[in-house]
């Protein structure tokens, strides 16, 4: 009984529904030969031959991921740096806020045609698209986080002579970390959207382009396997983020738990 409770039951909870869904899909494909729905085993084979053993992994997937990583990293660094500078100055904050709100509300995909014109098609433009779409949630959340800093914390820093760069490092950055991480989370999904559609829209390589090619040539199982690749990237990114967030904000989650229990 205890082994059931500790091991079997959680595993069952984890896999039961996925197995059920895949089973239903498999049974469905047994009876129908729908053009749009590939059967599961064949899809796995297609997936392996298309993405793992073929050269698409190095030719399309990795370059896409590299652009995604560069764009995100730049957006995070720039967003936090600018956010700190702006958030710490009340006048600059009031001056810039409406303009930034506009850019946050602007649906990021419209930046693609603009940057195509200004930079030209290529790697730089794709990274620039990701940066210019992802920076706003991070920037605005950093500004918000800096603004919301507890005045008692700031007085503590002042009274112990913690100022300038030390204050940013030891007080402001950690204090603003929860909203900053929330901004990064929003940016992740924007980055993925922009990576895919900038490739669909404007280039002749990369994951997004390849998947659209499959669709145009009616290579349906390959198309589905491409959708699966995007899904895996999305899920992996989300897990990496959750892992990092749990470590960075361990104190915050603990604090919230204590506060909620009170």
């Amino acid at each position: 009984m205890s082994i059931f409770n500790r091991v079997i039951s959680p595993v069952l909870a984890l896999v039961a529904l996925p197995i059920l869904l895949i089973g239903a899909w498999w049974i469905y494909t047994l009876n129908s030969t729908s053009f749009f729905v590939p059967e599961p085993v064949g899809l796995v084979e297609t997936f392996i031959s298309t993405w793992i053993t073929g050269e698409r992994l190095t030719a399309d997937v990795l370059p896409s991921l590299r652009r995604l990583g560069m764009g995100l990293a730049l957006a995070i660094v720039l967003g936090i740096l600018l956010g700190l500078l702006i958030g710490l100055n009340r006048t600059v904050r009031a001056l810039t806020e409406p303009v930034f709100e506009f850019f946050r509300a602007l649906p990021p995909p419209v930046l693609i045609p603009v940057l195509m014109l200004l930079i030209g098609v290529g790697n730089t433009m794709q990274v620039a698209v990701i940066v210019s779409g992802c920076i706003w949630p991070i920037l605005l959340n950093t500004i918000e986080g800096v603004r919301g800093i507890d005045p008692v914390q700031s007085e503590t820093s002042r009274s112990y002579g913690i100022s300038g760069f030390s204050r940013v490092r030891y007080q402001i950055l950690p204090a603003a970390a929860p909203p900053i991480m929330a901004g990064v989370r929003q940016s992740l999904s924007i980055a993925l959207i922009l990576m895919v559609i900038s490739e669909m829209f404007a280039t002749s390589s990369g994951l997004g382009f390849t998947i659209v090619q499959f669709q145009r040539s009616f290579a349906i199982p390959e198309m589905w396997s491409g959708i699966a690749v995007l899904g895996i990237i999305g899920v992996t990114l989300s897990f990496i983020f959750q892992f990092v967030e749990r470590r960075v904000l361990r104190w915050y989650h603990g604090l919230k738990e204590v506060e909620n229990a009170a």
Binding site: Q153, E155, P174, A175, L255
Partner: peptide
């Protein structure tokens, strides 16, 4: 509660 840094 507000003067101690909760992340340290």
């Amino acid at each position: 509660g507000r003067s101690l840094f909760p992340w340290l």
